[in-house]
Design a protein around this nucleic acid. Structure first.
Lengths: 145, 145
DNA sequence: CACAATTATATTGTGTACAATTTGATGTCA
DNA sequence: TGACATCAAATTGTACACAATATAATTGTG
């Protein structure tokens, strides 16, 4: 059994750096989201609903790249938590529309402080963050092709 | 209800770009790992064992940043799949040591082709990949502090 | 209009993640 | 040496992720 080639070493993998950073982000968000009662994926849904309320499950899943198998139970937990309501569209009964509750809407003000805190925790300048974000976004798009 | 500020828009978040790229990586690995019967996190464990066999659960969890709650069931599935063996250390019965089976060892040769395929799928040059990996690694380290 | 194809969501089953607790083994020190 | 802290895994409970399938509503076509 010879030594492992460099391309197969864990520490040299871009995929692992990304995998690990994704988990680190979720942990870094935790102290900000726990007091609100949100998990990190739930927070992503809130971001979308704060931008535009009343989206369908599909309209949430498309930007997030998540299907109903993930979103349906997640949204049910968010409903139970009092953040959103889930109701069938009257025009098309196949569609479930997700609306923010008043409580859900009101959380946006509290969330305003989070991006600054995370920027600080990232140790990056705003320019570095934007550049890195664009590079990682392109990477994700390429991988999905 | 006013418009959502730019810092709170999903598409502007570095965390989401990373989260999304991590999932895209797992999907991109799938066609290469499925034929071997490995999942992506199991592949990460294989990378570590190919580097050094006979690690303890902790010695796997430390570089991966995963605890026994994740690793114990994952390693049991890998044992059932015939990739590794799990046995208590004779010197210290608290420790479980993970060893590659012959089959597990033999997969390293098949895995050699994967990094090149993924480099290609990433759409990056090797230099770009290395630079991006280092930046994302530093980001993860900063977030964990 | 009947009916097959399509669409949107929900459900089921498997596999991570992670906090919190439990279990059993080892080390320490009065 | 014997009570006690410490340590490594395992276990339990909750929450994603995603493939595959099921269900129900809508659309398209003859």
């Amino acid at each position: 059994m010879s030594a492992s080639p460099p391309e197969l070493r864990l520490e040299n993998q871009l995929c692992f750096a990304v995998y690990s950073a994704a988990h680190a982000f979720a942990q870094a968000y935790k102290p900000h989201l726990d007091p609100m009662g949100l998990t990190y994926p739930q927070y992503l849904v809130m971001l979308l609903l704060w931008e535009q309320d009343g989206r369908s499950v599909n309209e949430l899943g498309q930007p997030l790249q998540l299907d109903s198998g993930t979103l349906t139970p997640l949204l049910k937990r968010m409903e139970k938590g009092g953040f959103v309501t889930r109701q069938r569209d009257a025009r098309d009964e196949r569609v479930t529309r997700i609306h923010l509750t008043e409580h859900g809407q009101s959380l946006r003000d509290k969330a305003r402080a989070i991006p600054t805190a995370l920027l600080c925790a990232s140790g990056l300048t705003l320019d570095q963050l934007n550049t890195l974000r664009d590079q990682v976004r392109v990477l994700g798009e390429n991988l999905r092709e």
